[in-house]
């Protein structure tokens, strides 16, 4: 359903800060794939997700979604197909708007916005039920400004927003990394639930190898702007952290020692 063909991206081209972030990424996702993405710092994980979301244009290569070439489509237009949750809990919600207002914005993703009410009476009811299902007690604070919520609560709301209108593709970029372990687990479980209930296709970046093995049906490893390892099915289920570390060392060579700590 999603295909990346030889996607390249160089930041700050022609300057001293030139950085090859993607050096030719090839990746094909099938419908219903839930892929975990691992790799050391600077491997290009976030950059791949940003390339798919259209945060900036890629330098070369093509990105196809459901047989439509979306390479040239601006970010806001791709949003009709793509739901996203970011590492930074601040990034996915509008802090100065209420919980229900944020959800109402998300409920119109991919639809033309006109002079109709920004939020309707039925939506109030619907959002209440959805937020209640999160089981965080937020349903009684629907008119609270999102900026007053904790990071975990904000990520939960962002997850809900990303999936409110069923996306073709869900992109999760270390969306639990900024949370304490308990909250992180809660948000991760919620992600699992949302993905399986809606049968979503998803890419989830994580620094936690155990999580990468435990979640999803497929795992890819990135290094130096490339996908260097891609496993799925039984083989992935039987993976151990030590296997991944070994793979990683093979690919990354001497740099592996420092990155190893990050990965484990």
């Amino acid at each position: 359903m999603l295909e990346l063909k030889n996607v390249k991206k160089v930041f700050n081209k022609g300057t001293v800060n030139e950085k090859v972030a993607l050096s030719g990424v090839d990746l094909v996702l099938n419908d219903g794939d839930f892929v975990t993405v691992i790799g050391g710092n600077g491997a290009g994980k976030s950059t791949v997700l940003n390339a798919i979301a259209g945060v900036w244009p890629v330098d070369s290569g093509t990105i196809t979604l459901h047989d439509t070439d979306i390479t040239a489509l601006p970010e806001y237009k791709r949003a009709q197909y793509i739901g996203r949750v970011f590492q930074d809990p601040m990034m996915g919600t509008a802090a100065t708007m209420q919980i229900d207002e944020n959800l109402a914005i998300a409920a119109r993703r991919g639809k033309a916005r006109g002079l109709k009410p920004g939020i309707t009476a039925e939506e109030h009811k619907k959002f209440y039920d959805m937020v209640k299902a999160l089981d965080l007690g937020l349903e009684d604070r629907m008119t609270t400004k999102v900026g007053l919520l904790s990071g975990g609560q904000r990520q939960a709301i962002t997850l809900l927003m990303a999936s409110l209108r069923k996306p073709d593709l869900l992109l999760l970029d270390e969306h639990t990394a900024a949370l304490d372990p308990k909250t992180a687990k809660k948000v991760l479980d919620l992600s699992d639930k949302i993905i399986s209930e809606n049968n979503l296709t998803a890419l989830m970046v994580t620094h936690n190898m155990k999580d990468a093995i435990a979640h999803g049906n497929r795992l890819i490893m990135m290094s130096e702007g490339r996908v260097i390892y891609d496993v799925s099915g039984e083989e992935k289920k039987n993976l151990k952290v030590s296997d991944l570390l070994q793979k990683f060392e093979e690919a990354a060579g001497e740099d592996a020692v420092s990155d190893r700590m990050v990965l484990s």
Binding site: E75, Y76, G83, R84, A94, A95, M97, A106, R109
Partner: peptide
């Protein structure tokens, strides 16, 4: 009234957080 409409809300969201707005399909 205007800032309560869909367009008005989109403008508010743009002012509050352009990343969020674009991720939700708003032409910021």
């Amino acid at each position: 009234a205007f800032f309560g409409t869909e367009i008005g809300s989109a403008i508010r969201a743009t002012g509050a957080n352009q990343n969020m707005a674009r991720a939700q399909g708003i032409n910021t």
